[in-house]
Design a binder for these strands. Structure first.
Lengths: 241, 241
DNA sequence: GGACGGTACAGTACAAAGTACGAATACACT
DNA sequence: AGTGTATTCGTACTTTGTACTGTACCGTCC
């Protein structure tokens, strides 16, 4: 594999921090986070392991950076548009991106310091909600709710036993058979009569929940922030400013 | 549960699969997932590294098992009770458990085959919703929504830069100062005027969103499953502005 | 032109982690 | 005592991250 050929052609495009990080994303996309090692990364870049250390100080830094790189792929909500349209677009984009880079969700948990793309992101979403007339309090509520839902949905999606080409049925059926007569009756019933039916796609659930949340937020925004249903809590938080 | 010790100083309580797995949880709780190595686990159990392999076949199996162990800590909804009460209780319990074992969320992503506690869990939640009169379709919608929210919220909570004793202000303030004059104006405004105010606790947001979801689900259950709000049904949405 | 220094890579080597393999120990029951 | 099974440990190999050092290729200054 050492190139015995001519000297002029085929030279590799020269390393760079950019190429190192994008290479890391590519390796993780292809084989999962556990396949991303300094050696595998170096190999995919066509260099020797220690060469990547010229551009990053250690693997931790690579992980911090590629998480932010993933975030930078998510579409920002536009400042001027209808908030529902923009928030919906951003939610779908986030889900799509996290599905394209499933390893990113696991990383979010361990990387504690947000990168610039992450911060820019938060800023844009807050701006959209505030521009729509949400109070600070309602903005905080809405943002926590929307992000929780989006990330949580993505988390569930990547946690499903099948990835890519397999359909639910292929993988779930053998599992289900083992319990078919007794242990988890309701789960099995739902699985056989609903989840495993031909047209079902878990991903479609995203839209339903998102609509429910957006509708409920609209109602909250036009009435007050108060919600019924909770017998004993108070949220404190005065009128700031 | 402890051995009646006798006068022997050594007196190791004898290893067991149970002790290995509980020890693994304890090590991860204390120092995070990356501190859980076969060697550290063995040390905490008072044995040599290779001894744990008598009870588990490899580290992967340990990870699979402790994730299910964590799930087993979450309270199951009771079959007979009011569904809102039961679902709320289970949601709070889940959040509490995941906060007690923050490393578990990251694991959920990589472990694809659910353990018995996880399955029992799903079964109980489905049973509760079905018993409340939810159709299969609405049950699927509701479950995806509730779980996404719960896990997503927990994911955000553990991703916050401060863990345990630190308050938001302690950690966010220095970060915020670096941007105080321009880069992320809306984020900074929200941070200084809301998030960093004395009484604020991100964890309180959980209750608000949960109430919103439960209210909206109640409405969906009594009317129909159809939701308005989505103009174009598909995410392709060539519209923009 | 030759010394010099900075840039971009590579080679060597070591520590920490998972774990295969088999030996050592303990205890039971002939 | 002898044989067998259950449990634990010692040794060693492999993969990983990375510290330290070396080297090839530039351009600059005298």
């Amino acid at each position: 594999m050492s190139e015995p050929s001519d000297d002029s052609r085929d030279e590799r495009p020269r390393l760079s921090r950019e190429r190192v990080l994008r290479g890391a994303v590519a390796v993780a996309d292809a084989g999962g986070l556990e396949s991303l090692t300094i050696r595998s990364l170096a190999q995919s870049l066509g260099v020797k392991p220690m060469s990547v250390y010229y551009y990053v100080s250690n693997k931790e830094e690579i992980l911090d950076c590629i998480i932010d790189l993933v975030f930078s792929e998510i579409e920002l909500p536009a400042a001027g548009g209808d908030w529902r349209t923009e928030i919906r677009r951003r939610a779908h984009s986030a889900r799509r991106v996290l599905r394209a880079h499933p390893w990113a969700i696991g990383l979010m948990e361990s990387r504690t310091s947000p990168g610039p793309a992450t911060l820019r992101h938060h800023d844009a979403v807050i701006a959209t909600l505030r521009a729509a007339g949400f109070s600070r309090e309602l903005t905080a509520h809405a943002y926590a709710l929307l992000d929780s839902y989006t990330y949580g949905f993505a988390l569930q999606e990547v946690g499903l036993p099948f990835n890519g080409s397999d359909t639910v049925a292929d993988v779930a059926e053998p599992i289900m058979e083992r319990f078919s007569t007794g242990e988890y009756p309701h789960l099995v019933e739902m699985a056989t009569d609903y989840y495993l039916q031909p047209g079902y796609d878990f991903g479609d659930e995203f839209e339903w929940g998102l609509n429910l949340i957006l509708d409920a937020l609209t109602a909250s925004a036009t009435s007050g922030t108060r919600h019924r249903s909770d017998p004993d809590r108070e949220s404190s938080a005065g009128r700031g400013q």
